[in-house]
Design a protein around this nucleic acid. Structure first.
Lengths: 125, 125
DNA sequence: CTTGACCTACGAGAACCGTCGTAGTATCGT
DNA sequence: ACGATACTACGACGGTTCTCGTAGGTCAAG
């Protein structure tokens, strides 16, 4: 009974929760509506299912329930990246990075950041 | 009518096709069976659907049809990495790499490879 | 010519995904 | 007190994913 890989819609909601912090259905709905049309009850239902799956935690002490991501952003990102790494890239992080940079040309800043990240990563070990 | 993001099962089959090259249903089935139980007709049906979707191409000139991946490995990998990058990492390649390395600790060799990749990448530009 | 091996086509079912409408309940403003 | 407002619960539906069984066609060996 581990936490399942979030689906597309679930990931979108998790992203909102990570950036907004604990939020009501209404808050999540408003944020999502700002980007694309979505019905209130759709978000509600999604959140309820995510609670059952253990993807979010629900605080029912108030009338408007407050939802929180069950896992911190970094943990879920590691799960997603690791999953794709294994399934589509035969475990090669280099291939994964190549794929990412092919899809979206990095800025000079991003390249510098990547370089610094590798330095730091290797440094503390 | 662009090519859709391959599902889990589809990606597994594409992986076989990429490493084996053009292959019959039987060949794909045998490779997959080596890793996990799977019915012959399941693989067949999957391949047929993938053909409809345009994920693979089918050569029917022989009795046993021969399937080939429609896109080279790198193109699909770029699609997958780019998709995850946008959906789960707000476009930050550094975060994606961090996630990948968190999920699977890299060997010294892999780190050197990453470093070299960045050098080469920045070099030719 | 018949039988068995091998192949494709296809239907179907179980589970999941994303979406939404409706119903029911609590709360607030007047 | 009562109607409007705000919430949750829940069923349902259309689409997709993955699985497999069955049917039917071809071909070669005996």
């Amino acid at each position: 009974m581990s936490i399942p890989r979030p689906t597309d819609a679930e990931l979108e909601i998790l992203t909102v929760l990570w950036s907004r912090g604990p939020a009501t259905v209404r808050a999540v709905h408003e944020t999502i509506t700002g980007r694309r049309p979505a019905q209130y009850t759709t978000v509600l239902k999604q959140l309820q299912i995510m609670d059952e799956k253990g993807l979010v935690k629900r605080d029912e002490s108030e009338r408007a329930h407050v939802y929180t991501a069950a896992q911190p952003r970094e943990a879920t990102q590691a799960q997603l990246a690791g999953d794709l790494l294994a399934r589509g890239f035969a475990g090669s992080a280099t291939s994964l990075l190549l794929g990412a940079l092919s899809a979206k040309k990095p800025s000079k800043k991003e390249l510098a950041e990547l370089r610094k990240f590798l330095d730091d990563y290797e440094g503390r070990r």
